[in-house]
Design a protein around this nucleic acid. Structure first.
Lengths: 367, 367
DNA sequence: CTGAAAGCGCTAACAC
DNA sequence: GTGTTAGCGCTTTCAG
């Protein structure tokens, strides 16, 4: 009666334990309840035109059979809800969940589903993440760290909104005005009277494989490194040059513990350092620790400015002065951009699809 | 606030800019390339039995048309990848992303997709989250905060793994041995010589609607409160009673800032408090702040023990002693449980589907 | 190597 | 009220 099945597992009753029973279809329910499949549909979807009694009987039958409508069949015939992929390098870095939270909230408001891929842990890249997401989603928002073109190619006509990297051929992009951020931080530090400034950058190219930097250079460790790779790092290097101030640049893996170590070495080599800007707040937490380790008072002996503006900063001691992004705003910008792309009010890579957001200096205790 | 485009975008042709073109189907590509739809399938999926030249021509045509295979049609015919829903109350609380990160990683390893729902922000409940997720997933893992039965009913035969709550009729569940945690913490504090202990609980029932505890009451704040609502709170109350020690219980909304305030009041009313256990690490951060505000040294004047073991604890000053859960382990447990349920090696609500995990006291500086 | 059939499970139209 | 007829877009047979 049902589909011809040669498999051994198919002859089992629906309640048979020991294996995930082959999913019941709408026809199974219809047969069991002695009605047509259409009636089952009406009963399951609370549609009108069906007697209450029939409805309940069908629902009961469905429950017993463990019937669940196939989301594929349903989607196929109804043109289902849009689902957007969210590619995130590392949920473990508080910056990203703060952003993701905002995206999920706003997407949910629009009735979208969010398929999350935290691709960093397996050592995957942004492109691989998009590849993984692609068959399942109608659009992607992501911190891909380069390769926007390749990602857009995978997605075809489906919108892609990339963050913190050049949009390239992506449908839309959100970047941050690091030149402005650098200027703001550097000026503030100078106004405070800081004279020996340092910047701690993140190792590895932006979100790419976190390969350590140097190309065979003799000095992999701290100290003024030429090979600043991140966009942020470059902005700070340029900003310092423009302002005519020296800036000792160190490079550290993206974690508080690593930043703490790197800062220790930095302080050994440049004991007079009295102002440090850090790649992000998480690493700044490590910097604060290192400063405390060395017996320095913050900000009296050395001021510290982080970047991101995550809630963590307020919990540190001293509380962290930081170049803050309103992460909920960033999420909103990304979702609204995508919304425009999806509804057609915005053209892919057209005007209005590249937003530039600015950091705001939030003064707390550390600088 | 930008998206109020009038509905002027509907009648446009497929190539017309300004509207999301009606999606090209496989037949469009076949027609345009002058082949049959089967050949298109072969070209798109890198299947054998097609000439290289034909393949490239078809792929090019597809690219031009912006053709993307419908994931529904594909899923319908192929029985696509399993996708699991992840219901999370609040990504903003560092506990959850740490857990989510682990789940996403392990799910991805298995080729699963993860649909994330961060349901807390909209003021939704766990059940609503499951309702939202249900049409899109084959299983759910979640911190639902009660109503496991209702959620399981929505899911039908699809597996549901609930965390930190009684499994009820859910397919599987992971709970934590709070009695053990309470005993451990209380013993440690007593061994340190703490005599006036306090516990700060989270306001509201477990993950239910985070109803604020009473606004107009004369004494919303600290003081020994009878109405301990959370499972953790009860465990601590019982543990203290069993050990014959007094425990001042306060209740605070789940944030560092709120905990800071509540702690201030607690210290006003019980100035001799010399040991505090806190509902979670995030709130413990606020407690630490309050203690510093009051000029107390930690742990000399008052010891503090948090709960969760999130990385944040190490960044605080002093570093937080905590009842730690290995969040990656919790994630692994949840995913493996689900895997067993999905493959049929485990029976829903059968033996082995209810795990109890224990906290481990991680001694750092605060106690 | 390529094409023509036959469904996958469901719901939107229409009959009855 | 309920059943019947068509497809949704795709991949699997199976023929040419």
């Amino acid at each position: 009666m049902t589909t011809s099945s040669g498999d051994a597992s198919s002859g089992l009753g629906p309640g048979a334990p020991g294996g995930p029973a082959k999913r019941a279809t709408i026809l199974d329910v219809a047969a069991a309840a002695g009605v047509s499949r259409q009636t089952v549909t009406r009963a399951m979807n609370a549609m009108p035109g069906i007697r209450q009694e029939t409805r309940e009987r069908v629902q009961e039958t469905a429950r017993q059979l463990g019937y669940t409508p196939s989301r594929f069949a349903k989607g196929l015939v109804q043109g289902a809800r849009t689902s957007v992929g969210l590619a995130i390098p590392d949920l473990t870095n508080p910056y990203y969940p703060a952003f993701a939270s905002s995206v999920v909230e706003l997407a949910t408001q629009r009735g979208w589903h969010v398929v999350m891929d935290d691709y960093g842990h397996g050592g995957a890249t942004g492109v691989e993440s998009v590849q993984h997401l692609a068959p399942q989603v109608d659009a992607v928002i992501g911190y891909l760290g380069g390769a926007a073109d390749e990602a857009q190619a995978i997605l075809g006509r489906r919108p892609l909104v990339v963050l913190d990297q050049p949009a390239g051929s992506a449908s839309g992009g959100i970047t941050f005005d690091y030149a402005h951020a650098a200027r703001t931080a550097l000026e503030h530090l100078q106004a405070r009277g800081c004279r020996q400034l340092a910047y701690i950058d993140r190792a590895g190219t932006d979100h790419g494989a976190p390969e350590p930097v140097h190309d065979g250079g003799p000095r992999p460790g701290p100290g003024p490194v030429q090979g600043v790779v991140t966009v942020r790092g470059q902005a700070f290097a340029r900003g310092a040059a423009a302002a005519g101030v020296a800036l000792a640049v160190s490079v550290s893996p993206e974690s508080a513990a690593a930043a703490r170590q790197v800062t220790r070495r930095l302080l050994d080599e440049h004991p007079g350092t009295d102002g440090i800007v850090v790649f992000n707040d998480l690493m700044a937490a490590g910097v604060l620790k290192a400063l405390a380790d060395s017996g320095r008072a913050v900000p009296a002996d050395c001021a510290v400015i982080g970047m991101d503006g995550i809630p963590l900063g307020e919990l540190l001691t001293p509380e962290l002065t930081t170049l803050a992004l309103d992460l909920r705003e960033v999420g909103r910008a990304a979702v609204e951009l995508l919304d425009g792309l999806l509804t057609g009010s915005l053209n892919p890579a057209g005007p209005g699809t590249e937003l530039v957001l600015r950091h705001q200096l939030v003064l707390r205790q550390s600088a």
